[in-house]
Design a protein around this nucleic acid. Structure first.
Lengths: 193, 193
DNA sequence: GACGTTCCATACCGATCGGTATAGAACGAT
DNA sequence: ATCGTTCTATACCGATCGGTATGGAACGTC
């Protein structure tokens, strides 16, 4: 009952996601959002609550639609394939032609004004979740003899995540996919096995 | 002649530098700046022109006072020492207790609002300058037989800069120096020699 | 000590920020 | 046809953005 909304909420959220991805959280204004999503301010607030809630929904959608490779990569049989698939997956997302450059999470992770402290905390937390899951996967690999006994799973996980974050900066600065692929190949030389 | 200014322009610029370092370009407001620098708005505009000029002066000071290691590292005798010194130098600056976390350049390098496009271009350009200088140094190393004949100096330079940018993200997310040191050690395993 | 100059304090500028109040338009139910 | 509900359009809110105009205070010079 009541008047049906004239826009598709899913399409609108996707548009918001891409704006946040390209311009960061604070770099994207409400006007940017309403223009890009093709809706008015009352529609935005009525449907998505406010800017912060909208960003969190966009972040969730981003993780579901663009970072899914991460969790399937964890299921690869050996640690080296896990690491390679994760790096390749990040680079693919970061350098996809039809996507904005870089990584939404890293783009929003930078130090910003005090007003967005909660967003910053969430972002850092999301990175940590991934990093810890990867560390646990490498611990298992070490137990299974897949990684050397003297290797440090936590350090290796941090290394992979750091390279991924570095490639995100490169990609949002305009680096091409092939160049970043070669980067991944170099980084993988550091990886045991 | 005229009334002497009541503040030290150098101290004020240093304060501005640290604010931009911690909060990025757009995350730092004029009020943040005047508060942190301990001066009034007319003093700021009279002495430094405007926000953008102030940022450029802070950037220049940053490169002189915190990135000087980069250019001296290029003068190290072999490519491996060059690479290691650069990574260590970045990490030192990024994780110095008395400094804000991360790297001013990387913190300002992410995508941000359209208003700061010129700043963004400058930042990307500064990164490219360093990366190209490093690539030239590695080309020399290759000619001198210091790097293998099949190595790609440009790719190696991009790899080192990418790791440095990744460590900046880590450091601005609160990673400690020792952890990031171990990261550098892992990354250096990828480096020839 | 009057003067030109330079700096500082305050108050102000238009524009934009995130967010909302109000009123009308479009529906299903009756 | 009318009513309650839910959407949209417009206009508006106080706060803050980067930047400036104005008026007086502190100097060197004469």
């Amino acid at each position: 009952m009541g008047r049906p909304r004239e826009f598709d909420a899913d399409d609108a959220l996707q548009a918001a996601l891409e704006l946040f991805w390209r311009k960061g959280y604070e770099g994207t204004s409400i006007t940017d959002l309403t223009d890009g999503m093709g809706i008015t301010k009352p529609s935005l607030y009525g449907t998505f609550g406010n800017k912060e809630e909208l960003f969190r929904m966009a972040l969730q959608r981003y993780e579901q639609n663009y970072m899914a490779f991460f969790w399937s990569a964890l299921e690869q049989p050996d640690a080296r394939t896990v690491a390679f698939d994760i790096l390749r997956g990040f680079v693919n997302a970061q350098t996809e032609e039809c996507n904005p450059g870089g990584c939404l999470v890293v783009n929003a992770a930078r130090a910003c004004s005090d007003a967005a402290l909660e967003i910053h905390k969430t972002i850092v937390e999301r990175i940590q979740v991934g990093q810890k899951a990867l560390a646990r996967r490498f611990e298992r690999a070490k137990r299974e003899g897949d990684l050397p006994a003297d290797s440090n799973p936590e350090d290796l996980a941090r290394f992979i995540m750091t390279v991924a974050q570095g490639t995100a900066v490169q990609a949002s600065s305009g680096a091409g996919r092939d160049e970043v692929y070669r980067l991944v190949d170099i980084a993988m030389k550091s990886f045991p096995g």
